[in-house]
């Protein structure tokens, strides 16, 4: 009997991204925007956390 190889092991359960998410991760304009957003969020932590 054939068993389904896609289930019943750890690596089968996490969510994995589909094409749109993978596209947006490398879409230049969106990433340029995210670059500034992430920098702001990191700088917020840096400014707050440095006594």
């Amino acid at each position: 009997m054939k068993t389904n190889p896609k289930v019943y092991y750890e690596e089968a359960y996490p969510p994995v991204p589909l094409g749109f998410v993978r596209f947006m991760r490398k879409f230049f304009l969106w990433q340029l925007f995210r670059f500034f957003v992430l920098n702001y969020k990191v700088m917020r932590i840096v400014a707050y956390g440095h006594s």
Binding site: R25, K26, Q31, L32, R34, L38, N39, K41, V42
Partner: peptide
């Protein structure tokens, strides 16, 4: 509100 977790090209630039 101070947490982030994001994959992308922007992270590499950073």
């Amino acid at each position: 509100n101070y947490t982030v977790g994001e994959m992308g090209l922007a992270g590499h630039w950073m």
